Amino acid sequence: MRQVATNRDRTAYEQLFDVIAPRLQGQLSRLGLQRTEAEDIIQDVMVNVWVKAGMYLPEKGSVFAWVFVMARNLRIDRARKLRPQVLMDFSEYDEPDTAENPEEQTLRYSHLSALKIAMDSLSAEQREIYDLIFREELTQHEIAARLNLPLGTVKSRMRLAQVHLRKSMEKSS
């Protein structure tokens, strides 16, 4: 392995291949792989041995252990790629009915009508703040700057408007 890593010695690589390949073949066969699958994995492992020989660290384990870990990882990767994907045919199912039923529609219109009446009953200053929040999507700070008001005044008007709207909506329910 050292000769392959440092000198790219082809003779040393061939010798390594001759020792490792049969052992890998036996190990992969015991794991239930077909001969062609095992040969593909062995080929990939041996290419990795050639390319990554410099990464082998003898103090971490034997050459065989390093090679067998590579083979195991490749086998797992291949199994994941070949795992059948479960595809569902949704053509037989109806689309969900998203249309409102008449009761829901009536209730929604009733709530919208009550909200419009409640909004119309706000003071002009409170309605102006709500318009800036919901139509122009301004923050409280931006509203204060635009209307040249203190931030506390904007917050107070919002709070009073919320209380008024809540009471109006509770009365209409």
Rank of each mutant, 00 (worst) to 15 (best):
W66V: 01
L107P: 00
T98A: 07
S123C: 02
K116N: 10
K60W: 08
T106M: 12
L87K: 12
V67M: 05
E104S: 08
A71Q: 00
A79D: 14
G61F: 00
A118F: 08
D97N: 09
H111C: 07
D89T: 08
R78W: 01
R78N: 04
A99P: 02
F90W: 15
N73K: 09
P84D: 01
G61D: 01
A71F: 00
S62W: 06
S113T: 13
P102Q: 15
S113K: 09
P58I: 02
L87A: 06
S62K: 06
W66F: 05
L82C: 09
L74N: 02
F68Q: 03
R83W: 05
S113N: 15
P84C: 01
A114K: 06
A79G: 05
L87G: 00
N101A: 11
R80M: 07
Q85S: 08
D97W: 08
L112V: 05
P102N: 15
L107W: 14
V69P: 00
Y109S: 11
H111A: 12
L74A: 06
M119Y: 03
V69G: 03
T98P: 01
F64P: 00
F90H: 07
V86D: 01
S121K: 10
K116R: 08
Y109F: 13
S113W: 10
E100T: 04
S91F: 05
S62Q: 01
I76K: 15
P102G: 09
S91Q: 14
N101W: 09
L74R: 13
L82Y: 04
S91A: 14
R83M: 11
S62Y: 15
L87T: 06
P102H: 12
A79F: 04
R80Y: 04
Y109Q: 15
K81H: 10
Y109G: 10
L107A: 11
V69I: 14
D120K: 08
P96T: 05
E59V: 12
A99L: 10
D120V: 05
E95I: 07
P84Y: 06
L122S: 03
V86I: 14
S91E: 15
R80L: 12
Q85D: 06
R108C: 04
Y93P: 00
S123F: 01
D77C: 02
V86H: 04
V69Q: 06
Q85F: 04
A118Q: 14
P96I: 06
S121D: 15
R78S: 09
D89L: 06
A79R: 12
L107M: 13
Y93M: 13
N101K: 05
G61Q: 08
P96H: 04
S62H: 04
F90K: 06
D89S: 09
Q105A: 12
E104I: 10
L107S: 07
P84M: 03
T106A: 14
R108H: 06
S110R: 10
F64R: 12
E103H: 07
Q85E: 13
R75T: 03
D77N: 12
